[in-house]
Structure formats: structure tokens, C-alpha cells
Design a protein around this nucleic acid. Structure first.
Lengths: 198, 198
DNA sequence: CGGAAAACCGACCGAATCGGTCGGTCGCTC
DNA sequence: GAGCGACCGACCGATTCGGTCGGTTTTCCG
């Protein structure tokens, strides 16, 4: 218990701040909002991070790091239903452990009001790429499927955390996201989605 | 073309305002945000609605009206996979036509920061109820399934509108949401999901 | 115990932003 | 050209913003 205390608290702050930034945007989230969410005063929060910009960068860095590990692992598997099943398990675990992460990555895809932070939009597109979506070629169904699964995961991770049911919901969340990807096609094969099957 | 101009513009404003309110919350959305989204000045926007509160009420009233019709139609069908398939079609059409509607209804379910507007939280719970979710009894999987499908729909409707692909994506969106509800092959039944079937 | 360091807070500041008002311009129809 | 609805730029008081400062509590360690 010597020193990891500080890091643990900081990570808790980053998780909650990420959830707020994802839902309201960086500019629209005040330090007081974050402070309330973590149970600190505004001054106490600024004791952990010297400025709002510093907090923002730390949130992005943590999200980037968390996403990088998962996406690297997922991206290295060969495409197909088996990969999607395994990938969903991995992603769901991380998403439930860090509510707001998925929403944060999804935000730049959804919001027209661009936020000029350099690495913000990257991870979202990277997430889509890791799931086999090529934004250049117009694989419409796969894009919708992956985006829908991520949307379901974003909402469910926020709702689960909001109701303290992360562990209870895990299996259901994973099943929902996997089904959203649309692999349940016993006989007929779709044109472009799951030609590689397990 | 005599007079429906005004109503048409107003409804456009309400749709975009609904999307902003849903994503950022009412208090965190400024009149300037809405004005920018609809291509008006703040004063021009206040020419259509006398105050921000009036705009809020109008948004809620429109959302309530749009949702009421759909949910009444959906809620009257008997539970089961067939109903879910039809219900998804209906809901997806409305959601794509009015981006932000689903997100607006989902907002009170997700956000801890309550907004004291009377009818705000009602429609969200009503939507869940209409899809056979009983918040009292703990039908965990059905709740996750429906919440996930609505989350996918919320994200997809926003993304589709953002990229002008509402019509192109319609079938894919409907398929994704239906699959998220988790009805497997007609013969085999899942343990706890759809014991009440048509 | 004592004392230093860290954690945290209430009160406050200048600047920015908020919702809303006002006077006026534009384009359209009698 | 008078009347009118749509719309805008500039502005107002009030609130909220990010951030600072001085002080108090808590924690750690000898």
C-alpha cells in the first residue's frame, strides 16, 4: 500500500472523466462536473491534474493505451465469425471495466462538431478497422453491423456501470454485441460479411 | 405551398434540437448550439420559439407524440420473435426519419444527472415496456437485449443522418437491431431469453 | 508522540458564455 | 410603397467557466 494509491485514484478519475467527455464533449464538460462525478471538489481535482487540458490529454492517453492493447490483440486474428466471437469477449470485458471508453472512441464518428485534439478521431477509426471495416471501400453492411455492435456496447457499458451490474450483465452484453454482428446465417451466405466462417 | 413552410422549418429545428439535447443534455446545450445546427442565428432561432424552455417543451412534446404512435402500435402486438421483427422495422423507420429521437428517449436511462422535466424519463421507460421489459421483475437478459438494440439504433440513426445514408442503411440497421434482440433459429430455444414466445 | 508532506477544500478572481432583448434589414405580397 | 414575417448583429445582466490562493485535515514515518 505504499504508493499505488495515487495511481489508482488517478485512473478512477480518468475513467469517469472519459465517460463524461464521451457523452457531453470536452468543451461542454466542466471541471465541476468531473469533480462531482469522482467525489472531489474542483480544487481537489486540480490537485491531481494541473489543468483541464492536462486532464483531457491524460484521458485520451489512457483511452488510447487501453484501446491499443485490445485492438492489437483483436486485429491480429483472422477475419470471420470465430474471431468476432472472441473479439467481442475481449472488448466487452474492457468496456465494462472502463465505462465511457467505447463511447469516447465512438464520439468523433458521431459528432459533427469536431474536436481538434490530434489523436481523438484516430482510435475510433482504428476500432472500426480492427473489426474489418474499410472506410474507403463501401462495405456498407459490415460498417453498420460493427457500428451497431459498438453502439450497443457503449450504451450497455454506461447503463451497467450506472446500475452497478457490470458482472451480472457480462454474458448478456457479449451475446447481444455478437448477435448484432449478424453471423447467425446457417445456410445462406451474405455477399460480403462472413464469407470466412468457423 | 401556402403555409406548411413554417411548420416544416419548426419540425426541422425540433429534430436537430432533440439530437443535441439527447447527446449533451438540455442544460449543457446552448441556444447557439441549436442555432448553428439549424443554420440560424440565435435571434433567428428565438423568433421561432420564444424561449429555450419553450423549445425544450416543444422538443419533448414532439418526441412524445412520435414515440407514442409507434409504441402504441408495437405494444399492442403479442410478444415473440415475429413481433420483434415487425417492431424493429417500424421503430427503425421512425428513428432514421428523426435522428436523436431514440437517443433522447435513452438519455434518462443512461444519465445519472437527472433532468427534472416531468415527461422526460417516462417515454424511455415506456419504450422498454413496449418491448416487453419489466423493470420490476429482473428479466436481465431481455433488458440487456432491448437496451442494446436501442443503443445500436441510437448510434446508427445519428451516424446515418450524419453521413446522409438513412435510406441506404435502412435494411442493414433493421437487421442489426433485430439480431441484437437475440432470436435464434426458429427451432432451438435459448435458456432464458424468449420463453414467452408467439 | 511530533512534524513534514500530501490530500483536500472554501472562497475567490477575471474572463468567457449564458439566455434573452432591441433595433434594424431583407424579401415578399398586396 | 406600405405592411409583414423572417431573420440578423450588437448588446445586456447574470451565470458559469477554468484556475489560484490560503488554510485545514489526513496520512505517513521516525
Amino acid at each position: 500500500m505504499a504508493r499505488p494509491f495515487r495511481q489508482q485514484i488517478d485512473e478512477g478519475i480518468l475513467d469517469r472523466a472519459a465517460a463524461l467527455f464521451a457523452r457531453r464533449g470536452f468543451a461542454k464538460t466542466s471541471l465541476q462536473d468531473v469533480a462531482d462525478a469522482v467525489g472531489l471538489s474542483k480544487a481537489g481535482l486540480l490537485h491531481h491534474f494541473p489543468s483541464k487540458d492536462a486532464l483531457h490529454e491524460a484521458v485520451l492517453a489512457q483511452a488510447e493505451a487501453q484501446a491499443r492493447g485490445v485492438l492489437d490483440e483483436v486485429g491480429s486474428m483472422p477475419l470471420g465469425a470465430a474471431r468476432d466471437r472472441r473479439a467481442v469477449e475481449v472488448v466487452v470485458d474492457v468496456a465494462l471495466a472502463h465505462p465511457g471508453l467505447v463511447a469516447l472512441m465512438l464520439a468523433p464518428v458521431l459528432q459533427a462538431d469536431a474536436e481538434p485534439v490530434p489523436g481523438a478521431g484516430t482510435s475510433g477509426a482504428a476500432a472500426l478497422e480492427a473489426f474489418g471495416v474499410d472506410l474507403e471501400t463501401s462495405d456498407a453492411e459490415r460498417l453498420v453491423r460493427v457500428l451497431g455492435a459498438l453502439g450497443a456496447l457503449a450504451v450497455l457499458s454506461l447503463a451497467a456501470h450506472h446500475e452497478n451490474q457490470t458482472t451480472t450483465w457480462r454474458a448478456h452484453v457479449a451475446a447481444t454485441c455478437f448477435d448484432a454482428l449478424g453471423h447467425r446465417r446457417p445456410g445462406a451466405a451474405l455477399p460480403s460479411s462472413d464469407q470466412v466462417e468457423a
